[in-house]
């Protein structure tokens, strides 16, 4: 196959992975906006969701209509609990301590999953079969439509949260001016709880739709974190829209690099892009100049 003929195929796969990275970038935005923390355990939240959806679909043979909400709920509740126990006590500590706490939280989640569930990746069946749909020269998995559709639904819900709910407005306000938010009496502890909870709900939903593609792999967390973070920085972590677009771009970029050059150096490529953005435009390609 010539390089040109591969384009539609690569673009289709890239958009699929990009949706996942976009949602992860959004999680980074939510937690950072609410607390100022960059959550190193972010990818492991998604892994929690992957394990939950595997449990629901493969172990208990639940219908999708039950499995997806349960996955989202389970991830959200687990993370909410962890936030109260471990993150909340460190809210006003210096950055290196908060960083070590989310790092250690990631290690703990990964370790617990390996201990209780095993470390071998387990496959999750596709939601609606594996017969590819041929479209414009690309073979698209039906699951890709679930992923893109799921992302659209999540973004629509979040748009509502950010623009219509008190929490969303408070979160965006806190992101803009943390000191000011405290002065007008926003409860920083509550915002932190909701921010981590919301990021976990998004992670759970993303995990549910992506599980058939990347399978329930307990060790994938760190790599997901890095890609999502790269997306958030690339687009600009100050606004949700730019963070998501950055994530989508990283997905497309990664797929093209893997398809046209080599998949050996994927992380290096993402890192190179990060460095470039930091040097040229620290606020992100789409971010506001500061």
């Amino acid at each position: 196959m010539t390089d040109l003929a591969m384009m539609p195929q690569l673009l289709a796969s890239g958009i699929m992975m990009g949706c996942v990275y976009g949602l992860l970038a959004l999680c980074f935005y939510v937690v950072h906006a609410g607390t100022g923390i960059i959550n190193f355990a972010q990818g492991d939240f998604v892994v929690l969701g992957l394990i939950a959806i595997w449990t629901c679909i493969v172990a208990f043979h639940m219908p999708l209509l039950l499995a997806i909400p349960l996955t989202v709920l389970a991830t959200g509740l687990t993370v909410g609990l962890l936030e109260r126990l471990l993150i909340a006590p460190a809210r006003s500590r210096e950055p290196s301590v908060q960083l070590l706490i989310t790092l250690a939280l990631g290690i703990l989640i990964r370790g617990l999953i390996q201990l209780l569930w095993g470390s071998q990746p387990q496959s999750v069946p596709s939601f609606s079969g594996d017969a590819p749909i041929h479209l414009a020269g690309a073979a698209i998995l039906p699951q890709a439509l679930w992923i893109v559709g799921g992302t659209m639904v999540i973004l629509a819900v979040l748009h509502f949260v950010f623009t219509r709910t008190l929490f969303g407005l408070a979160l965006r306000g806190a992101a803009g001016d943390r000191e000011g938010a405290r002065v007008i009496g926003l409860n920083a502890g509550l915002i932190s709880f909701y921010a981590f909870g919301l990021s976990a709900l998004i992670s759970g939903a993303a995990a549910a739709v992506i599980a058939p593609v990347i399978s329930a792999n307990p060790l994938i967390g760190l790599s997901l974190s890095l890609k999502g973070f790269a997306g958030a920085i690339l687009g600009g972590i100050d606004r949700p829209q730019t963070a998501v677009l950055g994530g989508v771009f990283i997905g497309i970029l990664e797929t093209f690099v893997a398809g046209l050059i080599s998949s050996d150096y994927q992380n290096m490529f993402v890192f190179g892009v990060l460095m470039l953005v930091i040097v040229i435009r620290p606020a992100g390609l789409l971010g506001k100049r500061t």
């Binding site: 950072h32 960059i38 950055p95 992380n267 993402v270 930091i278």
Partner: peptide, 22 residues
């Protein structure tokens, strides 16, 4: 990379470690 601070610097230096590994 020292233009960035705090948690951001943490994640970028983590990416550097991954690159050395690769």
């Amino acid at each position: 990379i020292l233009r960035v601070k705090g948690h951001f610097l943490g994640l970028i230096t983590l990416a550097f470690t991954q690159v050395v590994y690769e």
